Simulated scan of single mutants.
Amino acid sequence: MDSNEPDPRFTLANERTFLTWISTSLALSAGGIAMAAVPESLFAPWIRTLLAVVLVLLAAVAAGAAYPRWRQIQRALRRAEPLPPPALAPVVGYGVAGVAILALVLILLSR
């Protein structure tokens, strides 16, 4: 396996991206916990639970995929190969958008 030491700026940028995914995971976890604590008068209990579970699952996916993604990018940098396409961003982006749209619709319907 040919392995070259990449430019430290790229390695540090890769590390910052990893840490950002971990921060995103923590924020999604907090959002899931907050959703579970929403007053019963706003959403039916099963809806709160569904939204909370989706947010916490997205948090788990983001945290669980962050290190393998860091490792893949680091390997590509060392081998001077093209970077792998981002698989995690669409999952988290569409998941959060889905939760937000559903919550918005339910808030508007409850008024």
Rank of each mutant, 00 (worst) to 15 (best):
L19V: 09
V96W: 11
L77C: 02
S25W: 04
V38F: 07
V91Q: 05
G32N: 07
S23M: 13
V105Q: 01
L104N: 05
T17L: 11
T17A: 15
A65R: 15
D7W: 05
A89M: 09
A97K: 06
P45D: 09
V91S: 02
R9C: 03
V92D: 04
I47W: 09
D2H: 15
L28R: 01
L57S: 15
R48L: 07
R71M: 15
G95M: 07
P68T: 11
I47A: 07
I33R: 00
V92N: 11
P68N: 12
L58R: 06
S3H: 02
S3E: 02
E40Q: 08
V105K: 02
A103W: 01
G98L: 11
A103M: 01
E5N: 01
T49K: 13
P8N: 03
P6F: 06
W21A: 02
R111C: 04
R9S: 12
P85Q: 13
E40N: 12
M35Y: 05
A76E: 00
L106C: 09
G93W: 00
A97L: 13
G31L: 08
A66N: 06
A60S: 11
T49P: 08
S41V: 03
A97M: 11
L51V: 01
G31Y: 05
R9Q: 11
V61Q: 04
R9V: 10
A66R: 07
A80H: 14
R48G: 04
R78D: 06
N14K: 05
S41T: 00
A34C: 12
A60Q: 07
L42P: 07
R78T: 01
R75I: 03
L104H: 06
A97C: 06
L12K: 06
Q74M: 14
S110F: 06
W70N: 14
P45L: 10
G64C: 11
A27M: 12
R71V: 15
V99S: 04
T11Q: 10
V54E: 09
A44H: 01
G95T: 02
P85D: 14
E15I: 10
V96G: 06
N4A: 15
L28C: 03
R71C: 13
L106Q: 10
A80E: 14
D7C: 07
I107H: 10
G32D: 02
L51Y: 08
P45G: 07
T49M: 11
V38P: 08
G95Y: 05
S25T: 01
A34P: 01
V38N: 06
L83A: 09
A13N: 12
V91H: 03
V38T: 13
L109F: 13
Y67D: 15
I101A: 03
A37D: 13
I107S: 14
S29E: 08
R79A: 15
L55Y: 00
L26W: 04
L26F: 14
R48Q: 12
A37S: 14
L42M: 05
T17K: 11
F18T: 00
G64L: 10
